[in-house]
Design a protein around this nucleic acid. Sequence first.
DNA 1: TTGAAAGCGGTACCAG
DNA 2: CTGGTACCGCTTTCAA
Lengths: 319, 319
Amino acid sequence: MPKDPVTRNDVAEYAGVSTAVVSYVVNEGPRKVAPETRDRVLEAIRALGYRPNATARALRMGTTRTFGLITPDGGNPLFAELAKAIDREAAARGYVVLQTSADGDPETENAKIAELLTRQVSGLILVAPTEDPDLRDVEVPVIAVNRRLPAVSSVRPAYLDGARLGVEHLISHGHRRIGLVIGGAGHPERELGWRTALATAALPEGPVVRAPFSREGGYWAGRVLLRHEPTAIFASSDLQAIGVLRALHEAGADVPGDVAVVAFDGTPETEYTWPPLTVVRQPVEALAREAVRRLIEGEESVEALTVPTDLVRRRSCGC
Amino acid sequence: MPKDPVTRNDVAEYAGVSTAVVSYVVNEGPRKVAPETRDRVLEAIRALGYRPNATARALRMGTTRTFGLITPDGGNPLFAELAKAIDREAAARGYVVLQTSADGDPETENAKIAELLTRQVSGLILVAPTEDPDLRDVEVPVIAVNRRLPAVSSVRPAYLDGARLGVEHLISHGHRRIGLVIGGAGHPERELGWRTALATAALPEGPVVRAPFSREGGYWAGRVLLRHEPTAIFASSDLQAIGVLRALHEAGADVPGDVAVVAFDGTPETEYTWPPLTVVRQPVEALAREAVRRLIEGEESVEALTVPTDLVRRRSCGC
DNA sequence: TTGAAAGCGGTACCAG
DNA sequence: CTGGTACCGCTTTCAA
């Protein structure tokens, strides 16, 4: 027996006032209300269990105070952490986040974008979107996180500097043959960071393996890499590093004794691998904060905002 | 220069028809429209880039076709997997999911519930909610996942049978001193499953340690447990098992040689621990499917629906 | 200080 | 087959 929802009319009637007054009380404005009338209204609200209808409010106001958030995969720890941080950040500013996953599929991504726009989101946050999402006729602010997009504001970690930082750390441990595990095309910066660190130290370029950003991908890459006998490996994502670790264990290699490992990302999972991974940590909270801020403040700039990373030393590098 | 959104009025005017006709075309009903008129309208929609306003539609229809989803922590892999599955399942049925995290805090949880109701969600999915969420005056269907709640429909894995299955497997490997890592109060079933398996095999109860459902909690529990020298450990969650694994590695114990481990949950992370974890897998997809189905079909029953688990044999048990 | 009423965008009934 | 229009719940201007 789902009782009819209580509307503002019911409250007005119960309190013996007009609907306008109820509105003034609920929103604490824009007109003043006599304290005594106010109390009557509040009492009515409590008595009836009235809950304002945000849908109607949104229609009238033209804004939902809702952000749409699309990640390639909610099951990826990095994206989960990012989503969590964005949710928290948005909530703190009175926004709600409609979070959904594109399953790494461009078509699904476009369908989700359309769906979110239909629901009148006040802004769109695209985490690591595909190459070329359909953003025509989008009249709300959009921000890309962890990836640049033409004509769209974006926020991202310092991929190049971060990767260089990680590789330099490996070099400081005395490594001279440092392999790289990196994703497919379209992610040049971490690779460039690795290359730069090696060049600066006048070291030859170690082996490079391209594989998907997944545990499976890292495992496969690790096995391939082992044949080149590197003394250290820089993995461009946590997931890949975890796969590399497995390949190393299976081969009976000691980490960091035989092969040292450093990863890029720094999700919580890396603290509990064996051995714990030394990582270049993405500034997840800062990325979330900046993304939300830009959206709310309607940042016009299409310049990518780059947020610095930091090195977290654990066991896998030899520290 | 955010151009004004195109409304149904603009389309009607452009196509030279009434707004009603536009509505009939967009919704393919409830009245028929002459094919030629239809084409004019579709052309107008395309030309103007019209996108229906779901907010207005929801107001008129009284339903948003949106579910609210609250998890204790979006960063927890199990909840992330569950959320992902629910999102996918709901999308397949034309619903969108408003996903948010309660940060494991009852107050936040209640605030989020209120927030979601305010936004007129068509149903509420509470994943592993706290003891006693405030569900008064909730006029939409609610379903609890992975936890029973008074007077609320719920869906959950077979905790007891699953735990028993895991422990029996350990017993079949010849273990006779099997420790248990379990959460604090309020989760009696996995413990009972462990107890039942031991009793059935006429084995003495091994040591029990209660710790938070986290990697840290598991680590701590593992260290405590080691002092009792068990030959096997059943961890009631993946996260705890991962912590246990670290404690074991630090102590120089071989897994599964010195101590075997089996965990409950079976998130993807367990496939890549060292050694890979044998797990009792929660039927995440089935849980999601049933939760969404019950919500949509307005399941009245308050009986908890129990979905069976299955054992995934990997290395940590000695298989 | 309060009330009446217009209108946000869309739906669907009633007439034609 | 199509047009006109009342109404969903709420905000806010205008008038009282």
